[in-house]
């Protein structure tokens, strides 16, 4: 890496703030004329010369107005960011094959136009830019960050910049929020080892829950194929309708998933992640059995999915 590439990165490191809450102000905002600002100044100069040599004050007035607006924009562009407060929020687990939505809270006392937020990555991959026109008050936002691998990761440096109101100056600040994102493996279709309960117990895992217990866990509307032994007679007797009992043991009786043994481990985790994601979002009951001994009993729902993805994300390499 040459000096020309190292210098901006070193500057960014030096200028970044690492607080959990960042208030943009004079000490952490930087401003330079934009390329359009340079053109603007050149255009104003040309108009001034035209006015002076054409003995006409019309172009002179316009060029001085352009100069006055340039000076004014130096402050207005800075004020557009100054005073803005940024706070990091807790995010959800996401997969490595899609941009993670990093939740932030922006607190502003006034309208702020044309705010642009983008994560800067050390490997230089292009991150999606978010353009905002911020109303006063508290505004939760999420800035997309493209992870490169699974694991617990920090998105790095956030660049917040603006050229509003007229694009003549570029004002920016850096922030390294102390957010740890959980990134599950990318979702790649492929083989996954599927285990039934018997196979799983043979594998030595410990299962919780009492199969065949009389203590049901929940009631749900009775389906005709479930038979009379599942009917919750007490609710029928109370005249509350026909409900069927659902037992914990029954819930645990879903499919267990494990990485395919003949596939390279990281790729196997990606296949597993894909199977898990598609199955759980389709309403299947799935459990997870991982090489480090982690076992998550079959279940369904967003919380279960989150738990499984976190387990996959934090697997040792």
């Amino acid at each position: 890496m040459g000096f020309a590439e190292r210098l901006p990165k070193a500057l960014q490191r030096r200028l970044s703030r690492r607080e959990a809450v960042l208030q943009l102000g004079l000490r952490n905002l930087y401003i330079v004329p934009s390329s359009f600002g340079g053109l603007w100044l050149l255009g104003g100069g040309v108009l001034y010369l035209v006015g002076i040599n054409g003995r006409s004050n019309g172009p002179v007035l316009l060029s001085l107005l352009m100069l006055a607006l340039l000076l004014l924009n130096l402050f207005l562009t800075h004020l557009n960011l100054q005073g803005l407060e940024l706070r990091a929020l807790q995010g959800h687990t996401s997969c490595a094959d899609e941009p993670a939505a990093v939740p932030l809270l922006l607190i502003s006392s006034s309208h702020r136009a044309g705010l642009k937020l983008r994560w800067l990555t050390p490997h230089g991959s292009l991150q999606q830019q978010l353009l905002l026109h911020l109303p006063p008050g508290h505004t939760p936002i999420s800035v997309a960050w493209q992870p490169s691998q699974r694991g617990r990761q920090r998105p790095g440096r956030l660049l917040i910049h603006s050229t509003a109101p007229m694009g003549l100056f570029r004002c920016w600040g850096y922030w390294e929020p102390p957010i740890d994102l959980t990134i599950a493996p990318a979702r790649t279709p492929g083989p996954v080892q599927e285990l039934r309960r018997a196979e799983h117990t043979q594998a030595g895992a410990v299962l919780s829950g009492g199969a065949g217990s009389d203590h049901f866990d929940e009631l749900r509307p009775l389906r005709p194929e479930e038979g009379l032994q599942r009917v919750a007679w007490k609710t029928v007797a109370r005249g509350q309708g026909w409900y069927g009992k659902r037992f914990e043991a029954e819930q645990a009786a879903g499919l267990w998933l494990s990485p395919a043994s003949h596939v390279e481990p990281e790729l196997a985790y990606e296949h597993l992640c894909r199977r898990l994601w598609s199955g759980l979002t389709a309403g299947e009951s799935l459990g997870l059995l991982l090489p480090d001994g982690t076992a998550i009993a079959p279940g369904s729902g967003p919380k279960h999915l989150e738990r499984c993805l976190q387990a996959l994300a934090t697997l040792p390499r």
Binding site: V50, N53, L61, L64, L69, L72
Partner: peptide, 27 residues
């Protein structure tokens, strides 16, 4: 924005020393 820039414009117009024409430009 123009109203805010106007005092600066007027100050510059009245007070900034004027250059003499460098060449003739007639339109």
């Amino acid at each position: 924005l123009v109203a805010v820039a106007l005092p600066v414009l007027l100050a510059a117009f009245v007070l900034l020393p004027r250059l003499e024409p460098l060449w003739s430009l007639q339109l």
